[in-house]
Amino acid sequence: MSTADRGRRYWDTTGATKTFTHPVHREWLAGTDRAARVLDYGCGYGRVMAELNDLGFGEVSGADVSATLIARGRRARPDLRFELITSPPVLDHPAGSFDVIVLFAVLTCVPDDAAQRGLVAELRRLLTAGGLLYLSDLVLQPDARSRRRYAARACTPYGVFTTDDGAVCRHHDPEYLRHLLADFHVAAERHIEVPTMNGNRAAAIQLLAHRP
């Protein structure tokens, strides 16, 4: 079974019960037209979609690989538009279909370098010129337990580990994430602490980038 298939199976079972917590920094979107076409890529059950819609964004849609998470989202917010990603990372939309894309705690679920580059390239294709990419993800943790978990998978990119309930995740060097967005202009960066899906505290980074 491929890494992508194992990930989808996790999010359709154990992961479908999780609560996601990365916060939306509203100030970053304060000047964004509320008529902007917004995509939440890796939307899960639509938590961020709902918050953006409640902030006045009327054209919000979400896409995720997990049919179970999407079903959960549709039950909670039937007014929102959810789409299943059947051939990740590709979405069946024309180039430049969106003005804003949010990518919250998605790269942590895509441990492979090449797969991450492919995802970012697809998001660049989907964004209109001048569009915003708002990324939030977890960085390398300094505690001894995290370092042991990273070292246990030495053959993979550093920072990859398996959670106690079976998810393969990745924490990132912030400089790696900046390099991953080399085809964007990074306009803002903030460092925060968030609760993880398993109830721990973890350091995270948020980047706001423009597509040239």
Rank of each mutant, 00 (worst) to 15 (best):
A67I: 03
A154M: 01
V139G: 06
P88H: 13
R8W: 02
T32V: 15
R148Y: 00
R47W: 09
A95N: 15
L55W: 15
R47F: 07
R211V: 04
V194D: 10
T17I: 00
D173L: 02
H171Q: 05
L39Y: 08
M1L: 11
R117S: 05
R34K: 15
Y150N: 02
D173E: 11
P88E: 08
L55N: 05
S87M: 10
G118R: 14
E27M: 07
L180N: 04
R117M: 09
T21R: 13
L140K: 02
D113I: 01
M197S: 09
V160G: 00
H210I: 03
R124E: 09
S66Y: 03
G118C: 07
Q206R: 08
Q116E: 08
E59P: 00
Q206G: 07
L207I: 06
E189C: 08
D113P: 06
V120S: 04
A35N: 14
L91E: 13
A35K: 14
T17A: 12
G62P: 05
I205E: 11
V160I: 00
H25N: 15
G31E: 15
G131N: 13
K18N: 07
M1H: 05
R149V: 00
Y176S: 08
A95W: 09
D99S: 13
E175M: 06
G58W: 06
A188R: 15
W11S: 01
R37A: 15
A71T: 04
L208T: 03
R72S: 12
